[in-house]
Design a protein around this nucleic acid. Structure first.
Length: 290
DNA sequence: CTTATGACCTGATAGC
DNA sequence: TGCTATCAGGTCATAA
């Protein structure tokens, strides 16, 4: 579920609370949720989870490190220790990172696959019921970048007109498909793709190479704007998204098209159209978007 | 190269 | 109450 704004909301909270703290205990409850360098990229096997040596696990999870900084690129988050060790977190569809205090019982939560205890008593839980997400461990931020982030497109939050135009001009695919392709533009998912296309008056089905420079520029501006506004609202909470403190975001209240097929367009009252594009539910205004 | 499809998982919801 | 089908914010492998 989490797209860039949800991940950034989580990153900011973790940055506030964890930088400077020392990891006094790291526990991996499900080994197959941690992917190590050398594991097959992305397609690690869920079945041979018992084949990997367990003794390295805690070191891989920042045990004894002091948290130095947090990073994000697109929908991926990373926590880096003062010795360089870095854990990358991808939340998939249902992943959450939750901060719990000794007195509030986060114990009742299911699907907690990893947890970290800090020197001030705070615990960070990684839970992910659907297990589409995962943790990746690296000896340094540089290794993380090389292995995972170099393959991603420019981050949506700072997407320039030129970058947007370049991504679109290179392909004949539908523009929505390009926005969802993390190797082209990083961080935009199904919600914000539809919202940004509506805001810029572009039909999701338009081939990328049919988008004029001026349109691409407007699209880049609307992508940045919608992501920025969503971050300010703490993200969209349709179901699972929570800040690390357990609070939902509120940007779902500001969605103009996502989830509103059949309802009137807020700008022209035409009935919003819902269809399936790039295998995803897609909503647009047939009158406002060309 | 592109596009479509199914797979990976669980849980919520709607309909019977 | 319970069964089944459908759907979900994401990606990956495979095939056409």
């Amino acid at each position: 579920m989490p797209e860039l704004p949800e991940v950034e909301t989580i990153r900011r909270a973790l940055d506030d609370r964890l930088v400077g703290r020392r990891v006094v205990r790291a526990i991996l409850h499900r080994r197959d949720m941690l992917i190590l360098p050398g594991d097959p990229p992305g397609g690690f096997s869920r079945s041979n989870t018992e084949a990997k040596p367990k003794r390295f696990t805690r070191g891989r999870l920042l045990q004894d490190a002091r948290i130095e900084r947090t990073l994000r690129h697109g929908k991926q988050l990373a926590i880096a220790g003062d010795d360089g060790r870095t854990v990358c977190v991808h939340l998939g569809m249902s992943g959450q990172l939750l901060l719990v205090q000794p007195d509030d019982g986060g114990e009742s939560l299911g699907h907690v696959h990893a947890e970290w205890a800090f020197d001030d008593g705070t615990r960070l839980l990684f839970r992910d019921p659907r297990r589409f997400g995962g943790l990746w461990s690296f000896p340094s931020v540089e290794d993380l970048r090389r292995a995972r982030w170099d393959g991603l497109g420019p981050d949506g939050l700072s997407l320039t007109a030129r970058q947007c135009s370049r991504a679109l001009a290179a392909t004949h695919r539908p523009v929505k498909g390009v926005l969802l392709d993390q190797s082209r533009i990083a961080g935009v998912g199904n919600i914000y793709a539809d919202e940004a296309l509506f805001a810029s008056g572009i039909r999701p089905t338009r081939p990328g190479d049919s988008i004029a420079k001026g349109e691409a520029s407007a699209l880049a501006r609307e992508i940045r704007a919608v992501l920025r506004r969503a971050i300010r609202a703490g993200g969209s909470s349709l179901r699972d998204h929570r800040t690390p403190f357990g609070d939902p975001g509120s940007f779902q209240l500001s969605h103009k098209v996502y989830g509103r097929a059949g309802a009137p367009c807020g700008r022209c009252r035409t009935t919003l159209k819902g269809e399936r594009l790039a295998q995803r539910a897609t909503v647009f205004c047939p009158a406002c978007q060309h």
